[in-house]
Write a protein that binds this DNA or RNA. Structure first.
Lengths: 330, 330
DNA sequence: ATGATATCTGTAACCGGTTACACATTTTGA
DNA sequence: TCAAAATGTGTAACCGGTTACAGATATCAT
């Protein structure tokens, strides 16, 4: 491996001068600069990132901690974060905390040790309270931690309300909500929006817990439809969860959307791949990731933030798992 | 940040002794060890990973380069790699090359600079030929690079053959294969297996190119079914691609599996979420990832490899998009 | 008793960049 | 014309661990 001192020798200057050329910092004469540049070319020199990081206490990396890389929502988010990070010259380190608080802590510690410049946290888990003491710039994404940590979420409550409204407008008389994990702010907000609309309109409804996963949602829905065969509208708190609901319903002989309408939440490409394609409350996933990355970088570079809380609008995407019923029976 | 010298001062020993305690290397007296351990506790000292890496030229990290984190196949693989890596004390850095050769190169360079101990390459892209000169242990996963690089793949050819056989046994008379990208060994092998069976049995067939993506497969299938309305069996070279085919067929009023049977390739959880659930040739995704990780770690630790080429068996998983036709018409 | 070996510890150099500082030389401006 | 400011460059210390080496004791074998 070529070092800066090899280059220096080759160019007949000191290591300091080479460093100055590399960083375009301080005074360097034209001749020296040229000599260094040629030497760098000839020796195919690349400055050692680790040595740099050690002195600078900055690695130009940002950590992105996700709860479940297997849920397509997060890769989507990761891409956005990465795109923005790369344009600002940062590299992204993706960490899969697996919904495990301990693993999350370990990653945060490991990242700090690696001198990452900042961390974006998207964990499902409700974990710790001492985030302020982490000592590294942090941004919360699709998750609410505390008032001191800049936060990017979508309008979960309004989205939940919109989902309920859509089902009701489509003629559903008995709604179910497959809510997300308890204690998770985004899930609570979706529930709360749903509840408000449903209570206000007086539509029959039932709420059951299903984490965001497919199998669990399938099981829960099967049980739910058994107990309440007249349910004709389901709002699932994630698209994957909605797929589970559809699966269970179909297995019981219910037709979607004729017997049962289903609406998801997230707006991942996955929803379009289903047949029938999934109606959903879409989050602006890419925008959320991009915004979180930009906020973090501002934080890192000590630029002022206008706000600490950004709520991006969700959008109802009507596809084939819901449709307006004709006014007919009853 | 507490350094090793702070600890040394606190324990009344030299930094060298502290380092010896940390690494359990060399002679240290009981008393000294205890003093150091207490000092470490009291100061809450964590050795700096970057400094360590700089001297050791090893970061205990391994890089995993994937072509498209958005394709659920890869997160699945990543989890396996991570699981194994963690048990051996390595951290995984996930890089999304985006099917972009240049990005892949950049990542490899960046990883080398960070002193990663090894790299697992899974890229779709056919990229470069000088892998032997990378200078870092490497393993190819789901991709064939060169004879010098240990390789883990599944039995793509046999899988392709099994897919064709299954469709034929189920009574299909006119098969189509949505092949993967040209030049990609895994895609070629699947095609080759398919072709052999089809030629041997004399079944009518047509082959069209569709990368592994959903939209492309949907478009290609729509065109295909328009030109050849009598196609009654499709083998898609990925599960996501199969979903695209199903979508297109359904949009044209064809029923799956009654009018058209579809079989995918990969065996990602996604296939089960579809309605009807997807028949597929499943790769042992987790095993592949785990094996690649173990191979890489052996390589890193200079342990001997038994072989340089591991082909893991695929498995036909019959679900709802295929089914035996009764002998009836014609 | 005595040389050989094992145990213990500290000093200083090293990994590969970065930069404060000192010292020169050149340019500016009054 | 001469001090002040700007420009150019090298030395050496630093980031925070690691380790070769040397010197000091303790233990062992003969």
């Amino acid at each position: 491996m070529t070092t800066i001192r090899d280059v220096a020798k080759h160019a007949n200057v000191s290591a300091a001068t080479v460093s100055r050329v590399l960083n375009k910092k301080g005074y360097v004469s034209k001749e020296a600069e040229e000599a260094v540049l040629t030497a760098i070319k000839e020796l195919n020199f690349r400055p050692n990132a680790v040595a740099r990081t050690l002195y600078n206490k900055s690695s130009r990396m940002i950590g992105l901690i996700v709860p479940d890389i297997t849920n397509p929502f997060f890769p989507e988010l990761a891409r956005a974060v990465e795109d923005v990070a790369l344009t600002y010259g940062y590299t992204v380190v993706l960490c899969n905390a697996d919904g495990n608080v301990e693993k999350e802590h370990n990653y945060i510690e490991a990242l700090k040790q690696k001198y990452v410049d900042g961390i974006i946290l998207t964990t499902n888990q409700l974990s710790f309270s001492d985030e302020e003491e982490v000592g590294v710039p942090m941004v919360a994404l699709d998750r609410i931690i505390g008032s001191k940590i800049p936060t990017v979420v979508s309008s979960n409550e309004e989205g939940g309300a919109a989902a309920a409204r859509h089902l009701i407008e489509n003629g559903c008389r008995f709604l179910a909500h497959l809510r997300g994990p308890k204690g998770l702010a985004t899930a609570e907000d979706r529930l709360s929006g749903f509840r408000k609309v449903v209570e206000q309109s007086g539509v029959a409804n039932v709420i059951v817990e299903a984490d965001f996963h497919f199998e669990k949602s399938e099981q829960v829905t099967a049980k739910l439809l058994e107990h309440h065969p007249t349910i004709d509208g389901i709002f699932a708190s994630s698209d994957v969860s909605a797929a589970g609901a559809i699966k269970a319903a179909t297995a019981m002989g219910k037709k979607v959307p004729d017997d049962l309408q289903v609406i998801g939440f997230d707006g991942i490409p996955f929803g379009e791949m289903l047949v029938p394609s999934l109606t959903t409350i879409a989050q602006p996933i890419y925008k959320m990731g991009a915004m979180a990355a930009r906020l973090l970088i501002k934080l890192i570079e000590n630029k002022p933030l206008e706000r600490f809380y950004y709520e991006l609008p969700t959008e109802l995407i009507k596809r084939q798992t819901t449709r307006r019923k004709e006014e007919n029976n009853e």
